[in-house]
């Protein structure tokens, strides 16, 4: 199944440097329509007024964490089927289980490489 790389992608991280890194890596694999948010609340606002085909979010943010953002997305009738990838340094099994139970589409642990990001995006969007 061909992936539409012109889709809007929302990346969410409270580290601006990380946003910049992910944006550049996405650009290298031809995802050019990328928007940014620096916490869950800002991301939710953008998701509710925009049209995004993929969310890539950090977990550890304030005031709304990535997990809370995921829960809000899955509870929203319009957004609930949006593919959602968590990219986080939280690598404990309890975190992965909590994210899965909240409906995460895939989970990438930091530090990650470009190949892992590409592979997970293809896997998630291939199943979308």
């Amino acid at each position: 199944m061909a992936i539409d790389k012109s889709m809007n992608v929302l990346i969410v991280d409270d580290y601006k440097t990380m946003l910049r890194i992910i944006r550049n890596l996405l650009k290298q694999i031809d995802f050019n329509n990328v928007e940014e948010a620096t916490d869950g609340a800002e991301a939710l606002g953008k998701l509710r007024v925009g049209n995004f085909g993929l969310v890539i979010s950090d977990w550890n943010m304030q005031p709304m964490t990535g997990l809370q953002l995921l829960q809000e997305v899955r509870a929203d009738g319009r957004l609930k089927s949006t593919p959602f990838i968590m990219i986080t340094a939280e690598s404990k099994a309890e975190n992965v289980v909590a994210a899965k139970q909240a409906g995460v589409s895939n989970y990438i642990v930091k530090p990650f490489n470009a190949e892992t990001l590409k592979e997970k995006i293809e896997k998630v969007l291939g199943h979308a």
Partner: peptide
């Protein structure tokens, strides 16, 4: 309680561990 942050390499799950768990 789930905000543990990065784990030390000896304690951390790597990407393949997480893929297996998922």
């Amino acid at each position: 309680a789930l905000l543990n942050g990065p784990q030390l390499p000896a304690n951390a799950m790597d990407q393949s561990d997480i893929d297996r768990l998922l």
